[in-house]
């Protein structure tokens, strides 16, 4: 599993690539952790997790995501996941995560929902 993160306006965009199972869920947690710490410290209140590059996820990955969502919830911060592959979308439906997490078909639509300010910057970012 690999990840990158970037700050776009007032949103942190985290891109995850690869598999998230019991072997790699710790890496996934570590990818999210500094940004959750920023939520706790008040430096950052919006996170989008781009899962377009994730082709495999078990309950271990879902659990890490839920812990992140709960942390954000406590801090009145927002977290959304975006661009799920069909197979990952299916896992979200089976686990009922589709009922408790904010899920968007594309990263752009996640930006549109979370931060009007950041949409333009995200668009510029794409073309640059």
């Amino acid at each position: 599993m690999q990840f990158t993160s970037q700050k776009i306006s007032n949103v942190t965009l985290i891109r995850i690539q690869g598999r998230i199972d019991h072997n790699t869920s710790k890496d996934f947690e570590n990818a999210l952790k500094p940004h959750l710490d920023e939520c706790i410290s008040g430096m950052n209140k919006k996170i989008i997790v781009d899962l377009n590059g994730v082709d495999f996820m078990t309950s271990a990955g879902l659990r890490a995501l839920m812990i992140a969502a709960k942390t954000c919830d406590k801090q009145k911060a927002e977290i959304a996941v975006a661009a799920l592959q069909p197979i990952i979308q299916e896992i979200f439906t089976i686990s009922r995560f589709d009922l408790v997490l904010k899920i968007f078909p594309t990263v752009k639509s996640a930006f549109e929902n979370l931060s009007v300010d950041a949409v333009g910057d995200y668009g510029n970012n794409l073309s640059s």
Binding site: H22, T58, S59, L62, I94, S95, R96, L99
Partner: peptide
């Protein structure tokens, strides 16, 4: 429970979920 229920509203209710069992 479903996994979402197990780790949100029904956390610490003492039961597991269908997909934890599969894993």
């Amino acid at each position: 429970y479903s996994l979402a229920d197990m780790i949100t509203i029904k956390e610490d209710w003492g039961h597991s979920s269908n997909i934890i069992g599969v894993d």
